[in-house]
Design a protein around this nucleic acid. Structure first.
Lengths: 203, 203
DNA sequence: GCATTTATATAAATGTCGATACAAAAATGA
DNA sequence: TCATTTTTGTATCGACATTTATATAAATGC
């Protein structure tokens, strides 16, 4: 027996709305994204927005989850899938470049979405901080695997080197936000790999 | 003959006020720094602030000039003063770490002061963007000098390598803002120097 | 002393933000 | 058809942001 839905049906698709909201947050950050921007991008009025998401903050949290699932996960999967550590790191960084130039203005939502720690942004900032810590953990785990695989010498400071590569991702985002081209961002990758070259230990 | 100053004298020191304003902008960014924060830190009421600076935007521009003169110039002088390129870059990066941990929360005003490009922040953002471009130019010039001095091989992409080291500074700022310790930030410097090692050409 | 000039304190004007009240609209179920 | 349920559109609320109007205070010049 089918329980039919009572009441007037929603006039828009919530998934579409969330995707649009994600794009606006990505482009303007949490503070910069005004409710006007969000509702205009989705094509709805404020009450529909609040009925669908609850609040701007809740919409942001949903948008971050969507961003991680649809956007940010690709470079981390590439990091994991590559046969060697060096190729994995390279693929991760190049994937970060792809993401950074795929929106206007450039950059990564997880890195640029909230930078200052006002009381208002606290929840949003903490969510992004947790996502960044997760990224860092994934990189460190891949580097440790590289040590096990013999890609990297024993005694490699995986945690510290992971922070370095996380830093390269942050630099890619910042410079993309400042208007850097894909070519300029890609040029950041090669010197970043030098630490892996100098550490390289032939098996 | 001395032209005495007519009218009630100002009850606070403008230089002190500008320094306090700089610290607030540094800690909270242009948007995040509210007039309440500024006037409370200085210890004056809004009309005194407007009489002294004209507007929040104008105060920010003055604060950025002060920041460049008193804070950000040190690492760039160290870059220039060092005898070798490698030592200059190392000194610049370590100076960036010093700056990044010298305020709470951490980071550099020129990098973190404005990240999103709202119409309201346009002027402030453009000022910081110009300052970052100037930083990039100074690094590139130092690297070109390194090529002339024989520190770096001919054909070194000075502009691209400068963008890389500017990126390391951005990473330092961002991770400092995320709460990284001095030790963690300093650990970013060593792997960053690897490109200069692998490029090193004995004279 | 008194007019003039400039700064301060209080209070408010003005605009914008996120969030809602309310009634009309659009669906179901009887 | 009509009661019920949920969404939509308009118009607005309350809070807070930057900025300013007004009156008072504190200095100089005559």
């Amino acid at each position: 027996m089918v329980m039919a839905i009572r009441g007037r049906p929603r006039g828009f698709d919530r998934d579409f709305a969330l995707r649009k909201a994600m794009e606006v947050f990505w482009a303007k950050g949490y503070d910069g994204a005004q409710l006007t921007d969000l509702t205009a991008a989705i094509g709805i009025a404020p009450p529909s927005f609040y009925a669908a998401f609850g609040s701007k903050e809740a919409a942001f949290l949903d948008a971050v989850d969507l961003y991680i699932d649809r956007i940010a996960s690709a470079p981390m999967r590439a990091l994991e899938a590559a046969p060697t550590t060096r190729e994995g790191v390279r693929a991760m960084l190049e994937g970060s470049v792809d993401i950074a130039v795929s929106n206007e203005p450039g950059g990564c939502l997880l890195i640029l979405g909230v930078v200052n720690c006002l009381p208002t942004n606290r929840t949003a900032r903490d969510r992004l901080l947790a996502a960044r810590r997760e990224t860092l953990k994934l990189i460190a785990a891949r580097l440790r695997r590289g040590v096990r695989d013999g890609d990297l010498p024993r005694g490699t400071g995986s945690t510290r080197l992971a922070a370095f590569y996380h830093g390269v991702m942050q630099a890619i985002s910042f410079q993309a936000r400042d208007g850097a081209t894909r070519k300029e961002l890609t040029a950041l990758v090669k010197p970043s790999l030098a630490p892996l070259d100098s550490l390289a230990s032939p098996r």
